[in-house]
């Protein structure tokens, strides 16, 4: 029926390595670029004002990074699986207010138990997202945009305009928010622990690798027998749980909690993850890159006032960073594809 024989053709050896090497270099370049940007930014700011690197200022940066970092870990898991979780800031708000309320209403309650309440709230919120997305097959964007407002609405509903001030919270809880080990804030250590755990999970455990597989090629993942819904559910539950933990830490750190806790923070988190090299299309990127992104964002926030820049620029910078990061990824991908295509074109 069809043309039957096959064309003899010179073997195309020798070009196999090129694409991979290029890709590797680009990925490494991303982390390196972030580190260089960080160093440059810190150095410039420090030259402008040497107090920028004082112990207090550094602690401030670490404390602020802690929350972003914690939430960015969960977001990385979700984005790697080609999803997105826009509800994290609302979950944080709900958990912070819930934890503070429980502690204010029951002064005798042990702090860890109260923390468990906050984490539980987060896990439940994450489970709602996960079920709707993984089993209800609602696009992650729609689902978490919806729950962003639902969870935030719940906080406002519960708070009813009231706020919980530091005076109503137990001493031990507030102390924990500022306590340090060897000069490093506890909050930061907790965030780093979460980072290491999620990093280990994503790198060295089957369920974690499954998320990369799902984000890389969902149909192939299905054929490979990967249980997609349960993996996605897990990612959203972890994201929610970490946001819940973030809420507890938020309450401990700031002491005063009202219904707007963490409002708008989801943009910072998305920015940290995307700037850190986690592809918004899923399948690639690491939680350590996201951590660098989170650190960079916080440093920018803290450096702007030191450098005499209007702090109102902060939000615009976040937006610009998101766009620059995805545009850069796209351009790099085009270059790689073009170089692969060019090599194929040599055959004639």
């Amino acid at each position: 029926m069809t043309v039957t024989a096959r064309p003899p053709e010179p073997p195309k050896e020798g070009r196999r390595r090129g694409g991979a090497a290029l890709l590797d270099a680009v990925l490494r370049f991303r982390a390196l670029g972030l580190v260089v940007a960080l160093v440059l930014l810190v150095a410039t700011t420090w030259l402008a004002n040497s107090r920028f690197l004082s112990a207090q200022s550094v602690r401030d940066i670490l404390l602020s990074t802690a929350l972003t970092l914690l939430l960015a870990c969960g977001m990385t898991m979700v984005v790697v699986g080609r999803g997105i979780d826009l509800s994290v800031a609302s979950v944080l708000g709900l958990s912070a207010f819930g934890t503070a309320t429980v502690l204010a209403d029951h002064p005798g309650l042990p702090v860890p138990l109260a923390a468990l309440v906050g984490v539980g709230i987060g896990a439940a919120c994450g489970a709602v997202n996960g079920v709707v997305i993984a089993y209800g097959r609602v696009p992650a964007l729609v689902a978490t945009l919806g729950t962003l407002y639902v969870f935030r609405g719940l906080v406002y509903f519960l708070a009813g305009g009231s706020r919980i001030s530091a005076g109503e919270l137990p001493r031990g809880f507030l102390d924990f928010g500022t306590a340090r080990v060897l000069g490093v804030p506890w909050l930061f250590l907790i965030a780093v622990a979460a980072l290491l755990a999620v990093g280990e999970f994503l790198r060295r455990h089957r369920a974690g690798r499954d998320l990369y597989a799902i984000g890389s090629h969902e149909e192939a993942a299905r054929l490979a027998g990967i249980p997609i819904p349960s993996r996605l559910l897990l990612a959203y539950v972890v994201s929610g749980t970490l946001a819940g933990l973030g809420g507890v830490l938020y309450a401990a750190r700031y002491g005063t909690v009202d219904a707007s806790a963490g409002y708008g923070m989801e943009l910072d988190i998305v920015a940290a993850v995307v700037v850190g090299g986690v592809a918004i299309f899923g399948g690639s990127g690491s939680v350590f890159g996201a951590a660098l992104g989170a650190l960079l964002l916080t440093v920018i926030n803290n450096a702007l006032p030191v450098l005499g820049v209007d702090p109102f620029w902060q939000r615009a910078v976040v937006g610009a960073l998101i766009i620059a990061a995805i545009a850069l990824d796209r351009l790099v991908a085009l270059r790689v594809a073009a170089s692969l295509r060019g090599r194929d074109a040599d055959v004639h």
Partner: peptide, 19 residues
């Protein structure tokens, strides 16, 4: 249908990596 972002080894052992 391979996973473009994963290594060749991971593609071979996707979902059942040696532990």
């Amino acid at each position: 249908a391979l996973f473009p972002d994963l290594s060749v080894a991971e593609n071979v052992f996707a979902g059942r990596q040696p532990r």
